[in-house]
Amino acid sequence: MQMIIDGKTVIAEEGKTILEAARSNRVFIPTLCYLEKLLPIGSCRLCIVEIQGHENPVTACTTKAFDGMVIETNTPRLREMRKQTLGFILQTHPMDCKLCDVAGRCQLENLVKEYGAEPPMPKRAHKAEERPYSTPAIRYRPDRCIACSRCIRSCREVVGRSVLDLSGNGIGAKMDIVAPERCISCGECLSACPVGALTHANLPDGVSEGAKKVATVCAYCGVGCSFELNVKDNKAIKVTTNDYVGANKGSLCVKGRFGYGYVNSPERLTVPMIKKQGVLKEAGWEEAIDYVASRLAEIKGKHGADSIAGLTSAKCTNEDNYVFQKFMRAVIGTNNIDHCARL
């Protein structure tokens, strides 16, 4: 399928939307409410384009591309419209970017800068607001919400929980927590928010600035979700995801998204410990291994091999796990071996 975008002839796949066709041809059209994994709704009105032969602009994300279409994505008229639309958002959005955790990677902030948008009327004094959310892991600041409904749709379409919805009308329309009891704290909404309305609850504002993102694999279960550990001062401060990486495509469960605290926990075991008279005491490796070997031999002798079970962990390597089951079967002589990822 051939069409002309901004004067260039491009090829696109049949059945694609204008936005998909443009992006696959490296034409950038701004969006705020669009997320590839969600059904497009065209509510932010920033991806408007002009189609030859039609006076009214249409949203690229919801309009099918057709063979022979002649599309303009960046005319002065469209830029002016986008600028005004962004201005409407600014009428209520605080732009307290200095205080905001997502400053720098905020999609709104970037577009406002690019288009030089300004609110159409003088703004009223702004009052920062925080509301309880459906999970304590997320901080919700309604004053920053631009009602793009990405969180709502992520929760509904990706997670299938429908915790959130839009309520109210006109300027009073707000993202609302309608069924908090259904929330599973997966943070899909958090990762969908293009601005700083939903942030990590345990992070004070501004902390993630300058953090290094380290791509890694979740250590909890056998699915092996990919994510980025955000590291600052050699500490893991939060987990973010990339929709285009890994089998999980940016989705995580509560443990993967928020359960990274163990990494820097002072309570992690760093040396072997043996319980003596009811109290755990540090021991040397030799001593510990000898102790375990003698006790296992004793128990096996007295009660048989099947009285022993081995439980291993997803936080060990594959090789460790392999050797461990070998040890249980060949050395101890039992099939009682299991793994936390099977839960």
Binding site: I41, S43, C44, Q84, F88, A147, N169, I171
Partner: peptide, 23 residues
């Protein structure tokens, strides 16, 4: 009336018509 019936999903109508109402 526009503000009352505006579903608030899209930016221009939600915020834009509220600016008009204020004017």
């Amino acid at each position: 009336a526009i503000q009352r019936y505006s579903c608030g999903q899209c930016m221009p109508c939600r915020a834009g018509t509220s600016v008009i109402l204020e004017l």
